[in-house]
Design a protein around this nucleic acid. Structure first.
Lengths: 351, 351
DNA sequence: CTGAAAGCGCTTACAG
DNA sequence: CTGAAAGCGCTTACAG
């Protein structure tokens, strides 16, 4: 690999001049410049970004830690961050915490050791303050995404409670009075906010939450399936059911099918995040879609602003999710008594 | 930020000793070691990975360029690579070519400039040899994933042709004789291989490809929708239809619904890659699922092997996709004459 | 068992 | 308009 010294020697100039030609950082006589450029061609010289970063104490890279790039919403955030970063000439270092606080801390340390200019973090559910302390200690600019905390930090998320309230109001407008929720782990801020939106949404309709119809706990398909099944087997089962996330919805849908309930005739169903191509499901599922790509791009924007001006006051941005109404919530409430005898055979009718 | 010099001074030792304590690269007297460790604690010293990389000419990082992290299969490959890389203490630099050869080349240059120890690349469809030449010129180890070429390089993909043949044989076993394919862009090796598997699969059944029932071209939902619609409106329309990828399937499914065809009674349908939670579709879709996570981990394995031993002969690994049979291919062929009058209203029956 | 010193490939005041 | 030189924070032969 040719270095700047090789180029300088071949062109008969100093390394300063080569550096300035490469970076365009000061005027160079056209004839000199040409010699340098020829030498660069001849040697196949490429700037070493690492050496440059070290000298400048600026790496032109940013780190991104997500808790699960498997979920479509996170995949979209990653895309958003990558796109915005590439547009600014920033390289993206990606790490995955897999919802494990240990791996999260480790990932942060690795990225900090690489002297990223800034860090974007979707905290894992068990995340302790260790990570934040470590990042703070190094003075590396940080933006939290998706899961928003009551902390003086830059954060980008969505209006979870508001979207859930809207969903509840919509369903109540269809006459529903008995609501179920597959809510997941309330330690996770997004899920807690959705839960709170559920509660306030019901209150706004003069309804109370029936704890027996609310499924909480680990975000796992199996668990969601089992607990939802129990809820649907109750005599006072809900006529409207909402899932707070993709995985929870997957479990709930299995329980619904097994219970022999037709959507939307026997049960109205909606979910947050949902599935790619949710319109291809039968029936099409009403889904709260978050602008995940935008969350990513906005996060990078906040980050670069903070890098440029570390004194700015921390900002928390909440983007608007979009509620996509589809057939799964078209039904009116039906009393459990109306149910056909339990069977795994179900008929549905497409629009 | 404390440096190794600060630590050495505080501990009253040389920087050599600090370095060796930190990296465990030579014996250090316990008492000396303790002093050093105390100094590290006191100063909050963290090794600078960039400076270390520069000195060692090894960055402990690898670059990954994918053509579209939006597609579930690619997202899984990214996860696989990340997991395997983290396990080896390698940092992952991620770039997205967005199927654009220009961005692909640019991304490669950026990653090479950061002196990644190796590169994993899913080439974009219009990818020219420029990228490969550039990477070759820098002598950076490379592994191609997903899209496999006839080149002496390390590559990891799946057995596309074989899986397609199996699918065709399965459908032929159900009595189908008229096959349609939504095949996409044959410039893309994966899609070309699936097309070839389609052709040889039909030949094995003494059937010929009917060009009129094969939809080729850009991988876009709209295009796939329009062209599939035309195919389904033909009097000699296929009784079995296969899509070569997720996006193509999405378009095809819309055309199927619009044509008022019931799956699997009026038409058998299967797709490569397919959708997350494909079992929740109505009817559940027969899907060729590729082991995308494994493609990622194997690619990283090949890469580290080549980094360790650059002389090894290039290897191309083909993993086995799994054909997941579901209800969408349960039907027997029905003559177009059996069709109900065209209508957008369709009835389907769940299992 | 440990240290002095060279050097990885750059950038950038400083000087002319 | 350009160059000589210091220095970013490390690692690692070399020497003792």
């Amino acid at each position: 690999m040719a270095t700047i010294v090789d180029v300088a020697r071949l062109a008969g100039v100093s390394t300063s001049t080569v550096s300035h030609v490469v970076n365009g950082t000061r005027h160079v006589e056209p004839t000199t410049r040409e010699r340098v450029e020829a030498a660069i061609q001849a040697t196949g010289y490429k700037q070493d970004a690492l050496a440059r970063a070290m000298k400048r104490s600026q790496s032109d890279s940013i780190g991104l830690i997500v808790s699960d790039p498997g979920e479509p919403a996170f995949a979209e955030m990653v895309r958003g961050v990558e796109r915005a970063a590439a547009a600014l000439g920033l390289t993206l270092l990606l790490a995955n915490s897999a919802e494990d606080p240990q791996r999260e801390l480790k990932a942060a340390e690795v990225l900090l050791a690489r002297r990223v200019d800034g860090l974007i973090l979707a905290r894992s559910s068990g995340s302790t303050d260790d990570v934040l302390v470590e990042i703070e200690r190094q003075g590396t600019p940080l933006v939290l995404i998706d899961r928003i905390f009551d902390l003086p930090l830059d954060q980008v998320g969505v209006k979870n409670a508001e979207a859930m309230k809207e969903l509840v109001a919509h369903l109540a407008g269809h006459g529903h009075r008995t609501f179920g929720l597959v809510g997941g782990d309330l330690q996770v801020p997004t899920l807690r906010e959705r839960y709170e939106g559920f509660v306030t949404g019901l209150r706004a309709e003069d309804l109370e939450v029936d704890e027996d119809l609310v499924v909480l706990g680990d975000v796992e398909v199996e668990k969601a399936y089992e607990h939802t099944r129990a809820v649907l087997n109750r005599p006072d089962r809900p006529t409207a059911l909402i899932a707070s996330g993709t995985i929870l919805a997957a479990g709930a849908l299995r329980a619904i099918e097994e219970a022999g309930l037709r959507l939307p005739d026997d049960l109205s169903f909606a979910t947050f995040d949902g599935f790619d191509y949710a319109d291809l499901f039968e029936p099409a599922l009403t889904t709260v879609r978050q602008p995940a790509f935008d969350v990513g791009t906005r996060a990078l924007q906040l980050l670069t602003e903070r890098i440029a001006n570390p004194k700015t006051k921390p900002r928390t941005i909440r983007l608007d999710p979009r509620v996509e109404y589809r057939r799964s919530t078209d039904g009116r409430p039906s009393a459990p008594a109306d149910l056909p005898p339990r069977t795994r055979r179900v008929r549905t009718t497409k629009k």
